[in-house]
Amino acid sequence: MQQRNKKTASPSLSLGNFASTIGENLLNDAKISTRDVNVSYGDKQAIYDASLDIGRNQVIALIGPSGCGKSTFLRCLNRMNDTIGICKVSGKLMLDGEDIYAKKMDPVLLRARVGMVFQKPNPFPKSIYDNVAYGPRIHGLARSNAEVDEIVITSLEKAGLFEEVKDRLNAPGTSLSGGQQQRLCIARTIAVSPEVILMDEPASALDPIATAIIEELIDELRQNYTIVIVTHSMQQAARVSQRTAYFHMGRIVEVGDTNRIFTNPRHEMTENYITGKFG
């Protein structure tokens, strides 16, 4: 299974043949596994035949040029694409053996299990405390205010933000700096105890120092969560992830251990991308 290369019929493409994913795209005991996923927005197909397994308690980076479908793929994993009316998803997506797109799967509960952090920090216009307490409150995770307090504090601690904000938990979340806001959003996501955290270019709007803090945080979070991160920065992918998947024009071109991908890419296009020849 480890080395299975997928063969699919596909229309000929101008940029060489990458119809089949090469590398180690499938795993034993995956947290999330996807098979033959096709996604289209109306007439425009965004993802072709994507099959990728996401391992437990590790970070997988999705890299590739803009418009290659990595964010779309990410948003399929917690059905955020449902909010876009014209988006159609087919294929199999399984979270711990449960079909993500099954009729009986409640997207609301799914999103509590598969949290998401966005490219631009998007704290609610509420206090720092209320931002973090929002999820636990709507899911009824706490029976008393003391329990909410505890969840808020531990979540902020896990996100490495508590020390910076402990004296002003009632200040608006929007008053924080960009990097702090992003960590607040991560704390907010952690507060509902998800199993998987999806991150869509979480550091692309931040300066290098805030980025370094976020990357450190991602590495720590790996102990308890499965993390999927979309990034435009190859250095970032190399620093934080254990596995890397290279997307190009809606297809997964190559998947493998991050070290292997960056030192010994097998596909010409992967090599071109990571060496900066295009992208």
């Binding site: 917690n78 955020m80 909010t83 609301v108 509960l109 799914l110 999103r111 509590a112 299990r113 949290g115 998401m116 966005f118 631009k120 998007n122 704290p123 609610f124 216009p125 929002y134 999820g135 709507i138 899911h139 959003c185 907010r188 996501t189 509902v192």
Partner: peptide, 13 residues
């Protein structure tokens, strides 16, 4: 829209 996304992604209806 990011406010809606943020809330929906936390599992809010």
């Amino acid at each position: 829209q990011s406010m809606r996304d943020g809330s929906l992604a936390l599992g809010a209806t």
